[in-house]
Amino acid sequence: MSRRISIWIAETATIFRKEWRLELRTRYALNTIALFAFTTLVVVSMTLGPVGASEEARPFLPVLLWLILLFAASAGLPRTFVHEEEAKTAIALRLSAHPSSLFCGKALYNLTLILALELLIAPLYVAMLQMPIASAARLGLTLLAGGYGLAIGSTLIAAMVAQARARGPLFAVLAFPILLPLLKFAVEATIGAVTDEPAQAFLSLIATYDAMLTIAGLMLFPAIWNP
């Protein structure tokens, strides 16, 4: 492994560890995401009840699941860059970290947050709404690939939003066009996992979209971060 790659990996790991250290001290994102997701889940569950038993309701359950994940992620993930600007730590970071390792370190942190959220919410959602699962492996794969896209997309959008004044509404405005295709593919792939209909094409589309977001993030981030 070349020296440059090992330095890059060490930088990425340093940023990832710092993000988690800060998070474990403040618990801002963890609390926000978990509370938002859990509250929404309870409201949906209490309103609809165990609708998974009904044949007609099954295609709608994946939509609600991904909406819960999207809104919970939107409540917590933008903080990763917004906090750097608000706390005035962004200058020190700009003068110390390479943009690509910073982006990957933050994206990795967001990915672990999303995966933790999915691990918490998905089993509860399946249990409370009695959502049938034809293929647990496909559901797991869809959550993993969809969560990856959400994490990368949210990291990139958060970097853009952090530079602006109207941060709150801007995340939603930018997230809509960037994450909409991903959500559509994730919902279709989840429907496939619920109803056992073939949905390999949607899993491939998620993987392709994930790759596109990763490449776009790595290419665009240096220009966004250092205007």
């Binding site: 060490a10 930088e11 340093t14 940023i15 710092k18 250290r21 800060l22 001290r25 403040t26 706390a87 005035k88 730590t89 200058i91 020190a92 700009r94 003068l95 110390s96 970290a97 250092n226």
Partner: peptide, 29 residues
């Protein structure tokens, strides 16, 4: 950017980290 040391009233280090943790973090970078 990596060749300069910069002191400015607009620059802060992480308030949640200790002084040593801050310098350790940036030193690693």
């Amino acid at each position: 950017r990596y060749a300069v040391g910069f002191v400015s009233p607009d620059l802060e280090l992480y308030p949640e980290l200790t002084t040593l943790e801050n310098l350790d973090f940036f030193g690693r970078l």
